[in-house]
């Protein structure tokens, strides 16, 4: 049992506690956490490519992205720095749609972003309706500081997996730790199992 902190009462969540993963707290704002400057990304030159160990590389322009079937949905998001934001509304394209004509030859994906950020996931965490490339947040174009014009959204995992300014996937022969994963954070990052750091 952890020691009782003398005098600490705390504030119970003002929302259904079963929606808040262990060690998280409810946040109404939308904090920004980025390891470097916000990179300028222009939709006129934006591309999203799928390469590495695949049958044939795919490249999507912004127009291509917009021409694909769009989904609008509401999910909860969980940041490893312990905030959880409920009922966030997004519009974007399912990763299943982006991988429709891709023949993956590996189960491991490195996610690349403008600005040089990378993160990694097993393919299974990106498919089956669990991940999207989103461009609209609560009905407005996604702001640059939140990853606009487009970011990855993988709401069932901690939010560092939802790479801002996403620019493509590379299928790799094995698991290749990304930026935070190389810096002590968990390879997968399931908030309900509190997988924050590599040894969790």
């Amino acid at each position: 049992m952890p020691p009782i902190t003398r005098g600490f009462r705390g504030r119970r969540p003002d929302v259904d506690p079963s929606r808040i993963p262990p060690g998280q707290h409810h946040e109404r704002g939308f904090p920004v956490l980025t390891a470097g400057p916000t990179p300028p990304v222009d939709t006129a030159t934006w591309t999203f490519d799928v390469g590495g160990l695949v049958g044939a590389e795919q490249v999507f322009t912004w127009e291509d992205l917009m021409a694909l079937p769009q989904e609008t949905f509401t999910v909860d998001i969980h940041c490893v720095t312990t905030w959880t934001k409920l009922d966030t509304g997004w519009t974007g394209v399912s990763v299943d749609e982006l991988l429709k004509d891709v023949d993956p030859r590996s189960e491991w994906v490195t996610i690349r972003a403008y600005g040089g950020y990378t993160t990694n996931l097993p393919l299974a965490d990106l498919t089956g309706g669990k991940a999207w490339v989103v461009h609209t947040f609560d009905g407005e174009p996604l702001e640059a500081r939140h990853g606009g014009p487009a970011r990855l959204l993988v709401p069932h995992l901690y939010f560092w997996k939802s790479a801002k300014w996403v620019r493509g996937f590379t299928f790799t022969p094995n698991e290749q730790p990304g930026f935070w994963e190389q810096n002590g954070y968990h390879r997968r990052g399931d908030p309900w199992r509190e997988q924050r750091y590599w040894s969790d």
């Binding site: 904090p31 920004v32 980025t34 470097g36 990179p39």
Partner: peptide, 12 residues
């Protein structure tokens, strides 16, 4: 940009 390390806190 690769030389600039940032840490942000608080709501945006």
């Amino acid at each position: 940009p690769g030389r600039i390390h940032t840490e942000r806190f608080g709501p945006s």
